[in-house]
Computed example of a mutant assay.
Amino acid sequence: MAGRQPFKTPDGRYLVVRGRLWRCANPSLPEPRRKALVADLMDARRAVGQAKRNDDATAMKEARAAVDDAKIALGERGPVWWDDGAPDLNRHMARTTPYAEWYAGISGGER
Rank of each mutant, 00 (worst) to 15 (best):
P98A: 11
E101R: 12
R111T: 06
P27Q: 00
V38E: 11
P6K: 07
E31V: 04
D84C: 09
L21K: 01
A86S: 15
D68K: 11
Y99D: 02
K8T: 15
M42H: 13
G49F: 08
E110L: 11
G109L: 14
A36P: 04
D83Q: 07
L15S: 07
T9F: 12
Y99G: 03
A36M: 04
G85Q: 05
K35Q: 15
D88S: 03
G12R: 00
R13D: 00
A73G: 04
N26C: 02
T58M: 15
R4G: 07
A104I: 09
Q5T: 07
I106T: 07
Y14P: 02
L15V: 07
A65I: 08
L21D: 00
R46S: 10
R20S: 02
G3W: 15
A104H: 11
R20C: 02
E110K: 09
P30H: 10
V17D: 03
R53T: 09
Y14K: 02
P87S: 06
V80S: 04
R45G: 03
E76W: 04
A39N: 11
R4K: 15
W102T: 06
E31W: 03
A66M: 09
E62P: 03
E101M: 08
R64A: 04
T96F: 14
D55R: 15
W22N: 04
R4Q: 14
L21N: 00
R95I: 13
R20F: 04
R91Q: 07
